[in-house]
Design a protein around this nucleic acid. Structure first.
Lengths: 188, 188
DNA sequence: GTCTATACACCGATAGAC
DNA sequence: GTCTATCGGTGTATAGAC
């Protein structure tokens, strides 16, 4: 891991444990075993570091999701992938997911350009739109369907964090909650 | 409004706009038209102020919810109240709701005693438990049902914030999304 | 690129008068 | 209770050597 990555990784853990405020750059550098000044060689300000961390994690999560669904052909399979992949990723990357949640609900989000956010969700919105057009999904506003799926993901992730089930049980929860979700948005 | 309330109210707006970090106590006091030192007469530390604000808002929101559902007798009516009341409250108290969301997803939440949080959600958990026992709700883990309802509330609130509908349309969204939610957890 | 040393602004919190 | 004045500590960021 190069120094830049090491700084991001250390910052991630500290931010999630103590928050942005209570995590000085000096602490990040020290715990990463890197000189204070070097941090500012890679990131011109602390805010830049925070934003870079967000963009970085988001990209990796999106890449994982796209990799997961790449062989799915049915709308059902794709939507299931868009629901379950983030959950599986979150289980393997708890801290990262917590950071994204924390960041997304803080004023920092406003510092991220709208199109940076849009580019991650647009493909999924397109899929939902297709689902509605083809009559597979209920004729509801696409943004509502998107919001509902997202809310599901968010809350089931919280649930899985609070209850440390064995792997098999986790899979079952993800499967069964998708079944519930699908029943809600599916146009029967 | 007394000075304590005025400080809380001013802090609320600043925290939501700039975050905890970028909001110094001096700015809060100044914008509230109150001397810097006086802030520390009411709140011994900045963290105390932040926590007091959270407890304060949570209490008011809970009071509103309980008031809303107090005449409901059916499980359906009570659960609908528990879903829709927070949304109506959030529409009237956008900043407050945003603050609670921000706080709940930050490490500050750990500073709040578990039973302080529990006391707000326990009555609702009891209702859900009853619903499952009576066969009105699907036989799923109560905490999952709770998580799903909460996720619904959260995401539909985001949706309503992003799309500034007229009142009638908002009511319709809340009603229809509850219908979807109910269809998902109801034991048909 | 990476380090050490340091500037200096700022903030949380206190002291003490009224 | 409320104010003014201020201190000590801390944190971001820079300068400059290597």
């Amino acid at each position: 891991m190069d120094k830049r990555e090491l700084l991001l990784d250390t910052a991630l853990r500290l931010f999630v444990e103590f928050g942005f405020h209570a995590t000085p750059t000096s602490k990040i550098a020290k715990q990463a075993g890197i000189a204070n000044g070097t941090l500012f060689y890679f990131f011109s300000t602390k805010d830049e570091l925070i934003k870079a961390l967000y963009v970085d994690i988001k990209s990796r999560m999106t890449a994982y999701i796209l990799e997961t669904i790449k062989d799915e052909t049915s709308l059902y399979g794709i939507i299931k992938g868009y629901y379950s992949a983030p959950l599986y990723w979150a289980l393997e990357h708890k801290t990262e997911f917590q950071f994204v949640t924390q960041f997304s609900n803080s004023p920092y989000l406003n510092q991220i350009a709208a199109d940076e956010i849009q580019k991650h969700i647009q493909p999924f919105l397109d899929i939902i739109t297709r689902g509605v057009q083809e009559g597979v999904l209920k004729p509801i506003d696409v943004d509502i369907i998107f919001a509902l799926i997202r809310g599901h993901t968010f809350s089931i992730n919280q649930y899985l964090i609070e209850k440390p089930f064995p792997k098999a049980e986790q899979d079952k929860v993800i499967d069964e909650t998708f079944y519930l979700l699908w029943g809600m948005i599916n146009n029967r």
